[in-house]
């Protein structure tokens, strides 16, 4: 009998080995392990055996069944693994095909500079002040210490609308608006970006361009504060290694007035084409607010002092990103506009 059982078992193992699908395995399971199977029928013969043999035979049958079961299971696992592998192989994609277009658009370089500069100053507690682009002569000139027929008016050729209205030629009138609103009470800490207009048009001048004006007024503001503020700005904008120097200059609304240079960020001050071999790049104009301006705008110049500075937006962009012609900002050729996404 045992011989017969062994034969069945070896047949079962052979069938398992040859099975090609999980269905075939199920058949095998039914054939050899179900209650109606031949193997099961041998179990009923256990009753006829002696107790001692019963144990031995039971042990023998269990071993046989265990062999078949484990073989079935491992074959089943192997088949499943193979099926999964086949499926995965079928599902291979070309990962280089066009992706879903989530490309973002681009900020205009002009606004990128404004946003970056504002961010730096807002971090220092400045507010952003804005004013109208069509201004009165009074705010654009007179309150800034440029009376009618002052020769400094020739420095800026202005677009006029009528006798009293003009396209602002600088963002400085925003200073005057803010000061008058404050009614002689400091402190003031503002930055005012915006468009300005002058009668000028060539590769380095556009009749429309941008400025960012800064103004700080309080009781003990001095030029050292201006210098430190500009140093901080320059490092944030052009890199931590930048140094700042001042040269005497003239603006009607500041006294002393300075031109501010930063050490060249291209060559680090050694001299290159960008800085015209000087190691320095002129970046902005600044100064201490002229006492006349403070007075005209409602502040007592004996009590308050302040500093102001003005940055050319396109100039900063041209220097920082190597833009060669100011007109590129206004042509809006997307091949240019989309270069400044990060």
């Amino acid at each position: 009998m045992n011989e017969r059982i062994e034969k069945i078992a070896s047949q079962a193992l052979e069938d398992i080995e040859n099975a090609k699908s999980s269905e075939a395995l199920q058949d095998i399971h039914n054939r050899y392990l179900s209650k109606k199977s031949e193997l099961s029928s041998f179990m009923s013969k256990m009753r006829d055996l002696k107790a001692e043999e019963k144990v031995k035979f039971g042990q023998f049958m269990n071993d046989i069944r265990f062999k078949i079961t484990t073989s079935l299971e491992s074959k089943k696992a192997a088949l499943q693994k193979k099926a999964l592998e086949e499926r995965l192989n079928k599902e291979v994609i070309d990962y280089t095909l066009p992706e879903v277009d989530l490309k973002k658009g681009s900020k205009h370089l002009f606004n990128k500079i404004i946003d970056e500069v504002c961010d730096i100053f807002v971090g220092m507690g400045y507010q952003i002040a804005e004013g109208p682009e069509i201004e009165s002569d009074h705010f654009n000139f007179e309150l800034l210490n440029v009376p009618k027929d002052h020769p400094a008016r020739d420095m800026q050729d202005t677009f006029f609308i009528d006798e009293t209205l003009l396209m602002r030629s600088q963002t400085s009138p925003v200073q005057a608006h803010v000061m008058l609103e404050k009614k002689g009470q400091g402190p003031i800490k503002i930055i005012s970006p915006g468009k300005v207009y002058r009668r000028d048009d060539d590769a380095t001048h556009s009749h429309q361009f941008g400025q960012i004006e800064g103004l700080v007024i309080d009781k003990n503001i001095n030029m050292g504060n201006l210098l430190a503020t500009l140093e901080l700005f320059s490092k944030a904008m052009f890199g931590e290694k930048r140094e700042v120097r001042m040269r005497s200059s003239y603006f009607p609304f500041t006294e002393p007035s300075v031109e501010v240079d930063i050490s060249c960020f291209e060559c680090g001050g050694k001299g290159c084409a960008l800085c015209k071999k000087t190691g320095w790049i002129e970046i902005l104009g600044a100064g201490m607010v002229h006492p006349h301006v403070l007075k005209m705008c409602g502040f007592d110049p004996h009590e308050y002092q302040g500093f102001a500075f003005g940055i050319g937006i396109e100039r900063v962009a041209m220097l920082k990103y190597g833009v060669d012609d100011i007109r590129r900002f206004y042509n809006n050729d997307l091949r240019f506009n989309t270069q400044f996404k990060r």
């Binding site: 504060n225 210098l227 430190a228 503020t229 120097r245 006294e255 300075v258």
Partner: peptide, 29 residues
Amino acid sequence: ADLSEEVIRFVGFEAIKSRLPMMETTRGG
């Protein structure tokens, strides 16, 4: 104020000590 400019442009702006403003904190933003 004009005299202050005369002094500093004569001495040179290196004489200015760089120091951030010490003032009341303002609400920026």
